[in-house]
Structure formats: structure tokens, C-alpha cells
Design a protein around this nucleic acid. Structure first.
Lengths: 110, 110
DNA sequence: AAAATCAATCGTAATATTACAATAAATAAA
DNA sequence: TTTATTTATTGTAATATTACGATTGATTTT
């Protein structure tokens, strides 16, 4: 137990849930907003910006990178991060199509 | 430790993260999709639909209810659930405005 | 009133997440 | 080459999440 039963659900349902999971922490939202605003930054900038420990910041960056929504390239001694535009658009579209669905006007409890 | 340091982040950042958290499980996505499709249903329908135990299903329903995105009304011996259209639209708008931000065309790693 | 039905809650186990200090690895600067 | 800088990783503790059986509470039905 304690583990999500992913096999009970469709790929689309798991995809949406996994995207949501990547966004399900204010630090990761803050990172993405900062990257959108600044276009790119190095990890050290985020440590200052967020006020979290370096290890914690790195951990959040790793999650965002695993989710694909950001990418990092080594720049000498530091690592430069930016949004991955393709995945970003993919996220946007998936959430849009999820929320779009039907008019909710007839949608009332019994 | 193990607890999110919500005080480090803005209300908006925490709001988005909390919304995302509500959506961060495929069962909850499945529940919302089912509710959108059927307009309304009772908990028992979802237990069948999802293939999760009644207690687990009830737990997910509670989270969605706490997040405000669904509401339940007692119908005799059962409980009828439906989407809360106001909050649904709020979610849609918040995600839309989050993803909208700027064109990502100039957004490249160093 | 007794039995049946339905959903919430409690208790609990397994696993995941969040956070940080300490360390390692890799490159740049001295 | 030694030292500094920057980020990733490791180890670990605290807390949260997911799941389910068992029970409770509330309402219908018999």
C-alpha cells in the first residue's frame, strides 16, 4: 500500500495526474515562474530566490527536469536552467482540454 | 521536516500548488471526468467505476471536496456528488493564466 | 423494531515527499 | 597544482499520501 494503483487508470489520466504532481509544490511553481520571467537562470539564483537549502532546491529542479518541463545545460561550473517550450505547451494543452469539457450548466447535484 | 514551507511563497503560488495537488492522483482525475460526463453520481458508482476500495474512494472524494472542486448532497441513504462549477472555472482560469505567460520563444538556456 | 444499505471515519501499514547537513564531483581561478 | 565555486548526490528525519479492512452512523426497507 501507499503506492498509487496506476494500472487502474488510463494513460491520459495518469499523464494529467503526473503533470499535476510536478506542479504540486509552491517551490516548483516559483521556479517555473522565475524561469518564465528571467528566461533562464542558474541553480544558485534559485537558492537565493526561494530561500530553501541548496540541496532542496536541487531536488525540486530534478523533479521538474524528470517531468520534462525544464532542461538544464552545463555552463562551466554552474548549470543553466530554462523552460522546455514543447513540454510547457503540452502541459498547457492537456490542462486546457481537461478543463474545457462541456458546459457545466446542467451539472447539478441530484 | 517533511512539511512544505508554505510561508516562503506567495498566496498565488500556494494556491496553484494546492490546486495541482488536488489533481495529482489519477483516481481524482477519473472522478472529475466521470462527474463531468455523468453530471452527478453517488459514491457507490465511483467505487465500481474506479475499482478502488470504498474507503479509498471516499478518501479521494473528501480531498476533492476539501479543495472545493466537488460538492456532495445527502440523498436519503446515499450521497450525490457533482462538480462545483464556480471552483471548476476558478481552477481553469488559474491554470490558464499560469501557462499563458509570455511567449517562450526567446526562452533558451544560456 | 430489526435488518439492510450506503458512505464516512478510524486504525494501520506501506510508500512517497519534503527538507537539510554533509559529502562528492566537476570545473574555474589562483 | 592547490583552492574556490557550483551543483548533484547521499543519508536521514519528519511528515504526508495511498490503500484497505473494520467499524460507525444515518437512513430505508422489511
Amino acid at each position: 500500500m501507499g503506492t498509487t494503483k496506476a494500472d487502474l487508470f488510463s494513460k491520459q489520466q495518469n499523464d494529467i495526474a503526473n503533470m499535476a504532481k510536478a506542479l504540486a509544490h509552491p517551490a516548483r511553481i516559483a521556479i517555473l515562474q522565475y524561469l518564465v520571467k528571467k528566461n533562464a537562470c542558474v541553480c544558485g539564483d534559485l537558492v537565493e530566490e526561494l530561500g530553501l537549502a541548496q540541496a532542496t532546491t536541487s531536488q525540486h529542479l530534478k523533479e521538474l527536469k524528470t517531468a520534462g518541463i525544464i532542461q538544464g545545460t552545463i555552463e562551466g561550473v554552474s548549470v543553466c536552467y530554462c523552460i522546455n517550450p514543447e513540454i510547457w505547451k503540452q502541459y498547457r494543452e492537456l490542462f486546457r482540454s481537461f478543463f474545457k469539457e462541456v458546459s457545466l450548466d446542467g451539472n447539478r447535484c441530484c
